[in-house]
């Protein structure tokens, strides 16, 4: 049974990767990478029980934390870049 769930999670990760490769905007890519990270957490918890190794749950928790902080940091970076670009554009129009 665990194998079926692991397979479904892996397929979804592949689909998210396809979306990350095709995604027209940066935000599509961030969305699919975020989803990829969440699926990694699920996969790690399933693997923990598949192999009977409860230590993997700690890894899953740490991965969830890192994923959240990482996505927020990337978004903050893109937000400041977008703000800078729009400021430059409006200055160019004025001058």
């Amino acid at each position: 049974m665990y194998y079926a769930v692991a397979a479904a999670t892996l397929v979804t990760m592949a689909l998210a990767l396809i979306r990350a490769l095709r995604g027209p905007t940066v935000y599509d890519r961030v969305l699919s990478v975020n989803m990829f990270g969440t699926k990694t957490v699920l996969l790690l918890s399933v693997i923990a029980f598949l192999g009977g190794r409860p230590d993997f749950l700690d890894l899953a928790l740490a991965y969830a934390l890192i994923n959240f902080i990482g996505v927020l940091a990337v978004l903050e970076f893109f937000k400041s870049r977008a703000a800078r670009r729009s400021a430059e554009r409006s200055r160019g129009e004025a001058g």
Binding site: A8, L15, S32, K39, L42
Partner: peptide
């Protein structure tokens, strides 16, 4: 549901 989400994202 995980699979549905993946299909939907695509």
């Amino acid at each position: 549901f995980v699979l549905v989400g993946g299909i939907g994202v695509l």
